[in-house]
Design a protein around this nucleic acid. Structure first.
Lengths: 206, 206
DNA sequence: GTCTATAACCGGATAGAC
DNA sequence: GTCTATCCGGTTATAGAC
């Protein structure tokens, strides 16, 4: 309950409160309460709410993108094998970190400097990765006739959009599902199946 | 500049500020400044920030869903004609109201009562509409062999997700597009084309 | 209806004891 | 490292003149 242990408790609590309330809605007092420490303790480790947010965001997204890049290194031969493998990995990954897209989509439309930093720093890196590898891979596969001729950039947006929408629109989907109640696991399974089905039939030549 | 005119100015200003800053980030003073009236005037028409938000949200989403339902009444024969027509209409509609998905996705993950109300009131209605008409339409089209056998609910999520992602993830997409600069109109055209292309090839039987 | 002035409160941040 | 007590600026909301 003492020592640097507190710092970790603060980080965990802050992440949780920032996710639930958003940056503007988050209260330092609530973070302190959740961490089970005094509010002043937060200021012992971080000099401001901004710095706390910035620290947590950077750290979290750093770990996120590290995981994401590993995930994209899936060893598969052709696009027809890569796509379903990626969808499964991506959705599983997001299902284990559902708060990430939630927080991102919430803060991204504002002008919070910490988020702008994340956006440009990490996403620029992601785009370089995508454009030097995936974009070309799609283009070549199309020229080879392995997949239909498609707009590579838009195809990436399609895949990412299909995967991520479930997590950014979750509260809406929950309302949808009130009338068709199924388990969380079943819902995820169906979502993955439907995405892979659509993409494979939509991309492979007939 | 006087009379009830002020109320409309307040509504317009409030909508803009709530969209830009989110509920928690919005300041009554900023709304007053933007409306070109005094802060106290807002309290002459609305008794609290909550009530102002609630009023504007309910009103806006009421108009939104009215438009949405009209849009879904597209007179088309089969699914193969309906889908591209819907995608065009939906994206055009969102492009003219980009602040709606922005605000929705921003507030939806919190617990703001006004948003919860919108969510259950309007989306329940939408779901009834979807499940009594679209869901069945997809199911029948599949049985008729007009489209491939697909999970109807997931197909709806796919279509909506592909359309909406562009607006909920816009700041991310802008970062993507920094390296491939094209005009707004061209971007929207490509987005629509790619979605329709994927859906048609992915849903029509081979 | 519209304004000025101000009350009342809240929340981020700090001082300083232990 | 951890706490109590407190400051201080900002924000919602109201009182009351015009």
């Amino acid at each position: 309950m003492t020592d640097e242990n507190s710092k970790q408790r603060i980080i965990d609590a802050a992440w949780q409160v920032f996710v639930e309330k958003g940056y503007d809605g988050a209260r330092m007092q609530e973070i302190a309460d959740l961490a089970g420490i005094n509010k002043a303790m937060i200021y012992y480790y971080y000099k401001s709410k901004d710095e706390l947010f910035e620290g947590i965001i950077s750290d979290t997204f750093h770990r996120f993108f590290t995981g994401f890049f590993e995930m994209m290194d899936l060893k598969t031969t052709g696009v027809a094998e890569f796509i379903p493998a990626f969808v499964d990995a991506h959705i599983d990954f997001l299902a284990q970190n559902p708060n990430l897209p939630k927080l991102l989509v919430r803060e991204i439309h504002g002008s919070n400097p910490a988020i702008q930093k994340v956006l440009h720093h990490f996403f620029s890196e992601l785009i370089t990765e995508l454009s030097t590898k995936v974009l070309i891979k799609i283009d070549e596969a199309a020229k080879r006739g392995e997949i239909r001729p498609v707009d590579p950039m838009q195809t990436i947006l399609n895949v990412l959009g299909l995967n991520i929408m479930f997590f950014t629109m979750r509260p809406v989907i929950d309302v949808f599902m009130e009338k068709f109640p199924i388990s969380e696991a079943e819902l995820l399974t169906r979502r993955k199946a439907a995405i892979k089905d659509l993409l494979l039939y939509g991309l492979l030549p007939r």
